[in-house]
Design a protein around this nucleic acid. Structure first.
Lengths: 132, 132
DNA sequence: CCTGAGAATGAGAATCGTTTTCAGCTAGAG
DNA sequence: CTCTAGCTGAAAACGATTCTCATTCTCAGG
């Protein structure tokens, strides 16, 4: 369960960044940057909002978090390094990961559309077990 | 090819809304609201930015456009009413639609996760024929 | 263990996209 | 044609994100 998040190579390990990393690791579902900031601030009160944004962007670029298509506000979820997609509950806002994936094959996309896929994002919206 | 976009029932057909509709219809790939506003303004110079936002929201709610997970700014693509997904070229920004779809089955999602899927969004990012 | 270079930081200003406000305008039912 | 609820533009307000810059801190190399 506890895949450890880590910073990309070549960036410095500061107390602030560690606090943001831990806060992401402790997060259950989706979160906004402001929520993350508030949570990480309990671990490191000197953490500023700007640094939280900067760290989230680092994590996004290195695949540690994934942005969701939210209504209005931007939310993120923590990501595992392996392939997976998200089950977003429209009732409670919770996000589950699933390894289930059945995207069209690269070959089929290329044959039908001349398209070379690189990555795909599949977010499934619905109702989770708890809210059913 | 030319599925006609239309306004939801019960809203008035004003010159401004018609201009936005035409601008969406003419759009090739993805677009931001600001770009759409600029384009629609050529058809109807008295169109304000706020109305463009309001009309895009109308279209989004009625399924005429679909928001994309962009880097930074929010972009939209025009949508057909039937089921489809998007092939987004990360090189030229063009968006193609595809009817190819292979999301995990409702039954499997329910069995493995207790999740009741309602809708899903699959956006495939890569390189289009032209940019290959 | 020091030290220095430059990476990272917080606070707050600036910026950007989006929504709201409100007084005036207009589509369209009757 | 008339009347009214719905729609509008302009500008202000708003919230999220980025930038600026003086200061602090990390850590590679002595």
């Amino acid at each position: 369960m506890a895949h450890e998040l880590s910073l990309p190579d070549g960036v410095r390990a500061t107390a602030q960044r560690r606090a943001v990393l831990r806060a992401v690791g402790e997060s259950a579902g989706s979160f906004t940057v402001a929520e993350l900031h508030e949570r990480a601030r309990r671990l490191e009160p000197r953490l500023g909002l700007a640094t939280t944004y900067r760290t989230v962007e680092l994590l996004r670029a290195s695949g540690g978090v994934h942005p969701l298509l939210g209504e209005g506000r931007h939310t993120y979820v923590r990501c595992r390094p392996d392939h997976h997609h998200h089950l977003v509950c429209t009732s409670c806002g919770g996000v589950e990961e699933t390894e289930l994936c059945a995207a069209p094959s690269d070959a089929e996309l290329h044959r039908k559309h001349g398209f070379h896929p690189a990555v795909h994002e599949l977010d499934i919206y619905g109702t989770c077990r708890r809210c059913a």
